[in-house]
Amino acid sequence: MSSDIHVGDPLLVIEDLKLEFKTEEGTVKALDGINITVKKGEIHGVIGETGCGKSVTSLTTLGLLDNNARIRGGEVLYKGVNLLKMNDEDLRQKIRGNEISMIFQNPSTSLNPVYTAGEQIKESVVIYQSDDKKEAQKLVLDELDRVKLPDPEDVYDKYPHELSGGMQQRVMIAMMLACNSNLLIADEPTTALDVSIQAQFLKILRGLKESRDLSILYITHDMAVISEICDVVTVMYGGQIAEKADVHELFKNPKHPYTIGLIHSVPGVMESIEEFETIPGTVPRLINPPSGCRFHPRCEYAREICKEKKPELEEIEKDHFVACHFWEEVE
């Protein structure tokens, strides 16, 4: 695996990923042609509502899917290597926690409750950096300090349950740093945190991006957090990509009707209830997804063609992609 990847080069490329789940009620067509490229040193946000497939996408990347999942096509290239073709053993040894780390909404489930925070990080340090015990311990304290944990010595000796959610999340980040990971996949990491803790956490992530050229695939349902931390945003709807653009462009000049509806539902953009817009209908069930563009039953611009043909992701301006037949009419 070559390591001569520079800032701005594609690090993770998900190409035309199609995925289904077999369930008792039928086949859930969870992903229908997903394309996401995360570049080195970039924070790439993925936003969408429940069931849009954002979490499934990240789990696919690390081969962490349940047994009932079937990949129906596409590739996940990390530094040019297709992760979907790798066996589980290789993924575990070469990719997970090493090249790519992942943090979830609930960090307590990812930490081993019977080891102290420090020991868990030390394990990673010993594997990836230094097997000298003294030096490893010092490196761990450095990492803990880097994620702005007050009093690293104290945290080192604490068990996960003795730490608050925000601190646990930072321990996870420190562990990732200890592994020298190049890519962090963060799935709703701040949803369970208080705003003041969230603010601290986002600041740390931004700092790491600057200082280490860390790439992050940031998955969330929170528009405000997306605008806060991401460089590029992919909007997902019903297992398809609706729109993809630079964060400034997306907020100023959204082109997909769903993106617009989403932004106009966000408190903070809208100042009072009267201004809130609602998207009619509900999120589709993907056992029997709508044909063509999956958003068409809820879209005010929809016409016949939307039911028949899935719109291609089209580059309407530099680095601004929209999957909509009538994006030119949308305002």
């Binding site: 608050s164 601190m167 208080d194 603010a199 986002l202 405000a224 605008s227």
Partner: peptide
């Protein structure tokens, strides 16, 4: 004041500060 400053706004031009350190 500190709480409001910690709240991310859905506007990419506005970045939050993290004025509150430590835990509740």
């Amino acid at each position: 004041q500190a709480l409001f400053k910690s709240v991310p706004q859905p506007d990419p031009d506005e970045k939050v500060e993290a004025p509150l350190t430590g835990q509740v």
